[in-house]
Simulated scan of single mutants.
Amino acid sequence: MQKITTFLWYDDRAEEAAALYTSLFEDSRIVSVQRYGEAGPGTPGSVMIVEFELAGQRFLALNGGPEFTFNEAMSLSVDCGSQEEVDRLWEKLTAEGGEEGPCGWLKDRFGVSWQIVPTRLAELVGDPDPVKGQRVVAAMLGMRKLEIKGLEDAYGAA
């Protein structure tokens, strides 16, 4: 079992969120669902905690009520090996009320912030030539969903 587990607080859609997330990543699954009992504070029988794995990493999702909400101070960053993966995740996570943000950031319909980042970005920004890296950063700052071709074009611009 992993020593540190990300714990996510939802109002009342933890099971729906876990189902979406596990459908998007290989090696993902719902591990268990715990329900509120007579002691509450939730309605007896309703979902309290969903334990799930994304790409083998364990998460807990609580239906804790509206007291706390997500914000951009915490995000889930996904390393994507291709533009197709970036596009697929961007489409699925912004669907049904999600919101696009700048520089590869988005909020899903539950309010969770994600960074959908192509692996190629770090390779280009990390070039020993700082001028090339800065051109890539400037291009990224003008994007919402990150486009590998646009980043590579900025890198190669003279």
Results as ranks from 00 to 15, higher is better:
residue 3 K to H: 05
residue 4 I to W: 06
residue 4 I to P: 09
residue 6 T to R: 00
residue 6 T to G: 05
residue 8 L to G: 00
residue 9 W to H: 06
residue 11 D to A: 04
residue 12 D to N: 13
residue 12 D to H: 11
residue 15 E to M: 07
residue 16 E to Y: 01
residue 16 E to D: 11
residue 17 A to L: 01
residue 17 A to K: 02
residue 17 A to P: 00
residue 17 A to W: 00
residue 18 A to H: 01
residue 18 A to V: 02
residue 18 A to N: 01
residue 19 A to N: 12
residue 19 A to Y: 00
residue 20 L to T: 03
residue 20 L to W: 01
residue 20 L to F: 01
residue 21 Y to G: 02
residue 22 T to I: 10
residue 23 S to D: 06
residue 23 S to L: 02
residue 24 L to K: 05
residue 25 F to Q: 02
residue 26 E to Y: 01
residue 30 I to K: 07
residue 30 I to A: 05
residue 32 S to E: 09
residue 33 V to L: 06
residue 36 Y to E: 03
residue 36 Y to D: 01
residue 36 Y to G: 01
residue 38 E to P: 14
residue 40 G to A: 08
residue 42 G to V: 00
residue 43 T to F: 04
residue 44 P to Q: 01
residue 44 P to C: 03
residue 45 G to W: 02
residue 45 G to P: 10
residue 46 S to T: 15
residue 47 V to F: 02
residue 49 I to E: 10
residue 53 E to F: 00
residue 54 L to S: 04
residue 55 A to Y: 03
residue 55 A to N: 13
residue 56 G to R: 03
residue 58 R to I: 05
residue 59 F to W: 08
residue 59 F to C: 03
residue 60 L to K: 11
residue 61 A to K: 04
residue 67 E to M: 12
residue 67 E to Y: 12
residue 68 F to Q: 12
residue 68 F to T: 10
residue 69 T to V: 14
residue 70 F to H: 12
residue 71 N to W: 03
residue 71 N to R: 06
residue 71 N to I: 01
residue 73 A to E: 12
residue 73 A to L: 11
residue 73 A to P: 10
residue 74 M to T: 14
residue 75 S to H: 12
residue 78 V to Q: 02
residue 79 D to K: 13
residue 79 D to T: 10
residue 79 D to F: 14
residue 80 C to V: 02
residue 80 C to P: 00
residue 84 E to C: 05
residue 85 E to S: 06
residue 85 E to I: 08
residue 85 E to N: 01
residue 85 E to T: 13
residue 87 D to T: 08
residue 89 L to T: 08
residue 89 L to C: 07
residue 90 W to S: 08
residue 91 E to K: 12
residue 93 L to H: 03
residue 95 A to Q: 11
residue 96 E to T: 05
residue 98 G to M: 08
residue 99 E to A: 15
residue 99 E to L: 15
residue 99 E to T: 12
residue 101 G to M: 14
residue 101 G to C: 10
residue 104 G to A: 13
residue 104 G to Q: 13
residue 105 W to F: 15
residue 107 K to D: 09
residue 108 D to M: 08
residue 108 D to K: 07
residue 110 F to K: 05
residue 110 F to T: 07
residue 110 F to P: 06
residue 111 G to W: 08
residue 113 S to A: 14
residue 115 Q to M: 14
residue 118 P to R: 13
residue 120 R to K: 13
residue 121 L to D: 04
residue 121 L to P: 00
residue 124 L to R: 04
residue 126 G to H: 07
residue 128 P to C: 06
residue 128 P to R: 05
residue 129 D to E: 09
residue 131 V to S: 11
residue 131 V to P: 09
residue 134 Q to I: 01
residue 136 V to W: 02
residue 137 V to D: 04
residue 138 A to K: 11
residue 139 A to Q: 13
residue 139 A to K: 12
residue 141 L to N: 12
residue 143 M to F: 04
residue 144 R to D: 13
residue 145 K to L: 06
residue 145 K to D: 12
residue 147 E to K: 09
residue 149 K to A: 15
residue 149 K to C: 06
residue 151 L to D: 05
residue 152 E to H: 10
residue 152 E to L: 06
residue 154 A to V: 13
residue 154 A to Q: 11
residue 157 A to Q: 15
